[in-house]
Design a protein around this nucleic acid. Structure first.
Lengths: 143, 143
DNA sequence: CTACTAACCAAACGATTGTTTGGTAAACTG
DNA sequence: CAGTTTACCAAACAATCGTTTGGTTAGTAG
């Protein structure tokens, strides 16, 4: 029963990435799904919910993949870069929406994404600080 | 008499860069100008004209600044980078609109911008090829 | 004083926006 | 079989969109 919603999210990610969130209408989504635009509301509550779902699960993906890196600080830093690029490449449409359209979220939801973004940057900063502490990286620069 | 239009273009560049072309309404522009949204049409023909004006004159600026660089190929290449960044920095709002919103132009106008963009890249390519011919740059790589 | 122009308002235009409502088939569940 | 759920349509909703129209004011030029 939730699989139709996943289809909608897929189409939304594609259409939003192609036309931008503000440039995409529910009509555009409906055409991609082969139904009428009103029918979409049997599965979702609002257009912005779709945007938030795409952006939020995108943020989670970045954090999850970064959380999986292991090894020494230099190894983790390399793996972090690879994970970041791979996450983008494997979900290019969602990443495009994440990058371009997260500013159109409501203030509350924007704050949620900002918090996750800061957490992500903190994880990378921690890797760098670990590398400095273990004398693998230069210590004369701000992490 | 054309100075009011320049004001409108200024406000449009600011509002478009803040909210995106599709996210910005004529109402938003009118508020920035202190007039009613219908009154804008005493000075312009359409919203898209504003976008094209901003994007097209932005493209011209990049080309003009790049056309001014002189010296040896390595000097020109350095100066080209500096000119590019300075052009962005000195017109950040217009550059933001250029980068994010040129895709919303009509097909005809998109082609005009694409042509100017290709010309710009060709100018840089020529500098690199000159440097290769004069043995300043490596010759084993594609320009 | 007249003619003209620039700048704007007030009001409306049709079209499209996101969203809601009530109803209807088909498929699944007990 | 009856009852419920899933998925959708058809039609409407108020709001906003970009744009047009006709008229008004102030200032400039002859």
């Amino acid at each position: 029963m939730a699989q139709r919603k996943d289809q909608i999210l897929d189409v939304a990610a594609r259409v939003f990435s192609e036309r931008g969130y503000k440039g995409a209408s529910m009509q555009n989504l409906a055409e991609g799904l082969g139904i009428l635009r009103g029918s979409i509301y049997a599965h979702i509550a609002s257009k912005e919910d779709l945007l938030f779902d795409i952006v939020d699960s995108g943020a989670d993906r970045f954090i999850f993949r970064l959380g999986q890196v292991t090894g020494s600080a230099p190894m983790k830093l390399r793996a972090a870069f690879t994970a970041h690029i791979e996450t983008i490449a494997e979900h290019l449409e969602a990443s495009t929406v994440f990058l371009n359209d997260w500013r159109f979220l409501s203030a509350d939801r924007k704050r949620i994404i900002e918090t996750k973004r800061r957490a992500y940057e903190k994880m990378i900063e921690d890797i760098i600080e670990e590398g400095i502490a273990q004398r693998h990286f230069r210590s004369d620069l701000d992490p």
